[in-house]
Amino acid sequence: MAPSRREERTPHWILHTFLAATVIYTVYPVLWVLTIAFSGKQSLAIADLPADPTKLDRFRAVLPWPTRFAFGNFSSVMADQPFARWMLNSAIVAIGATIVGVALSCTAAYAFSRFKFPGRRFGMMSFLVSQMFPGTLTLIPLYIIIVQWLGLGSTLSGLVIVYATTSIPFSVWMLKGYFDTIPKELEEAAVMEGAGPGKIFWSIVLPLAKPAIAITALFSFMTGWNEFIQAATFMDKEEMYTAPVGLRFFVGGFQQQWGYFAAGSIIVSIPVVLLFLYLQKYLVSGLTAGSVKG
């Protein structure tokens, strides 16, 4: 069956309709949380329904636009709750873990990519397998190591160490895949000019691997910024909570402070969403370079 030329192009308006519908699906929950946050109330209803609601009333209750704007939730969360402190903790932990984790992963991935040495395959395989470790299995031993052996319970450095090391296997795989795609000829040329391995790594390989490093750093940061089970386990003192642990406070258990939760969620999401959108240009090249070239 020979297709005609005309069938080959779907009209753009169909594509736009499809994309617009999808965008509504992806954006609606975000608008919903914004609405709750700006409503100034703790309820999770957008609008109060009258006793006998009409279709219009019901539509109003679905439309993500607050009945009146109020900033009360934001100011209360930042001022009355120790939320600013929790945000600071999260920032320190996430940035610290990112720096430590990416630094260690870069050097290790470079070695795995460029040197042949006994244990190389075994190392990469065990890093891959470690991605299958269920977190629950390691939580109790980690607690014993961090809190009882190292005495780092309720400290930010304890969380930094945990997040940095647990992100290493994934980061090494991503970075190694990318390093593999950087042509060796560049380094060979540098060797001819008398550059040492340290200099080659620092001034040739690292700058070329910027997309992969940016993405690795982004994922490490997101892990540190968003993780809440380990943080909830290791942090006993309320002033040492991270933002996710604190946020869960508002709607977990018997508390139903949806307004605080929504406002807090937005404050917490803004940095990571902005960072993500800023770095998304690297997403494709950073993520797929290694795997496409095989």
Partner: peptide, 24 residues
């Protein structure tokens, strides 16, 4: 040289990824 590059990452993951796993 290779081992020096991977040593910090290996030590960290051994202590906080692989050891907890085996302990578990």
């Amino acid at each position: 040289q290779a081992y020096a590059y991977i040593a910090p990452a290996i030590m960290g993951t051994t202590l906080l990824v692989f050891f907890p796993f085996l302990y578990g």
